[in-house]
């Protein structure tokens, strides 16, 4: 039977009902209609469903929705400031860090999670941080370039 829960998603308190066995991923997509977060493998291996849970990157397919009750969740829909893309999103556009785009929301959320913890990562640290995100198109080089460029842009903005 569906039971009530409350999650703050992208800064907005959302109250809804979900089955006890519903994953956070299915709750976001099917109950809250936030389909930016993708379902790839549904077993934690591909990283397409990455969101920030209380500020930390997690695979939302491995989280029970009810265990996220009273938590803060950020999805890819929560990054842009109205029409202005988040620096990580902008860098993926500028550096061609995507092709088919399916893994992109997950990669972007992993990158945002990394840059919150480590605003000035080395290339090795970027590659380590996206080890849990599979991309079958890009070969990752342009993804890594985009994340390093986003870090630079965010640093420059802080200094300005």
């Amino acid at each position: 039977m569906k039971k009530p829960l409350q999650i703050t998603v992208n800064g907005e308190i959302r109250q809804f009902f979900a089955e006890p066995y519903c994953s956070l991923l299915d709750a976001l997509r099917d109950e809250l209609l936030l389909t930016g977060t993708k379902k790839g493998c549904d077993e934690g291996d591909c990283g397409a469903c990455t969101v920030l849970l209380n500020g930390q990157a997690v695979t939302s397919c491995l989280v029970l929705a009810h265990s996220a009750h009273d938590s803060q969740v950020t999805t890819v829909e929560g990054l842009a400031d109205h029409q202005k893309l988040h620096p990580v999103q902008q860098a993926f556009v500028d550096h061609g860090g995507l092709q088919c785009g399916f893994c992109t929301p997950g990669l972007i959320m992993s990158a945002v999670g990394l840059l919150q913890e480590n605003p000035n990562p080395t290339e090795e640290e970027v590659r380590f941080a996206i080890g849990g995100n599979l991309c079958r198109c890009t070969g990752y080089n342009k993804v890594v370039e985009a994340i390093l460029a986003a870090a630079q842009a965010m640093q420059n903005k802080l200094k300005a």
Binding site: V58, T59, L62, S110, G113, G131, G132
Partner: peptide, 9 residues
Amino acid sequence: FAGVQVRNL
């Protein structure tokens, strides 16, 4: 162990 997202859980 796994990847960052799994280690966070």
